[in-house]
């Protein structure tokens, strides 16, 4: 087993015993990736931190229900993240529809004041291209690129087969390549 996965599995076992330090270890392993994934998938990227917190709070409260036979800890955590993001987006659409929330401003993703216009344009184009992908393709490519999950882990997170994940990734990459080449 991959050392990261072994550490995560040990942390899960410790969480079941009620050790809060184990949750901190899990956050150190997957927190950044899950937050990045949420920031890319959510309609309102500013909610990414909240969603990441919710993922780990749920992981804590449901740690006993984690079954290692059904997949790696990473898949389990990302599945929670995927579902929470879907819920947040659904709620966000409704809230905007009834006027509780205003339409989310495009996020200022400036990597730094000194960052070039080209880099920012490229980032904006890539994000637009990712947002234009069908939901499953978007989830798969982001889990791969941002979450750095393997095909098997993505399959478990999306509750599908590895073959289907490969297909989703192939289509997503082709669509991204085509769109970005057209923009260039």
């Amino acid at each position: 087993m991959d050392p990261r996965q072994a550490e995560a599995a040990a942390a899960m076992a410790a969480m079941v015993r009620g050790e809060r330090a184990a949750l901190a270890r899990l956050i150190a392993l997957y927190g950044a990736g899950i937050r990045r994934y949420a920031a890319q998938v959510l309609l309102n990227a500013t909610e990414a931190e909240d969603v990441a917190q919710e993922v780990f709070l749920r992981a804590w409260s449901k740690a006993a229900s984690y079954d290692p036979a059904k997949g790696a800890v990473s898949s389990w955590l990302y599945r929670i993240a995927v579902n929470l993001c879907i819920d947040h987006n659904r709620r966000g659409r409704f809230r905007r529809f009834v006027g509780i929330d205003s339409i989310a401003e495009p996020e200022d993703d400036t990597p730094g004041a000194e960052a070039g216009l080209d880099a920012r344009q490229r980032l904006a184009l890539t994000r637009a291209a990712i947002r234009a992908l069908p939901q499953r393709q978007r989830q798969a490519i982001l889990l791969k690129a941002v979450g750095e999950l393997s095909g098997a882990e993505i399959a478990a997170a999306l509750n599908t087969s590895e073959g289907a994940v490969e297909q989703l990734l192939v289509r997503a990459r082709a669509a991204l390549r085509a769109r970005l080449e057209k923009e260039d």
């Binding site: 990045r36 690129a145 941002v146 990459r173």
Partner: peptide, 10 residues
């Protein structure tokens, strides 16, 4: 592509 994407979105 995956690497570029990961680097870009970080």
């Amino acid at each position: 592509i995956d690497r570029d994407l990961a680097a870009l979105l970080k």
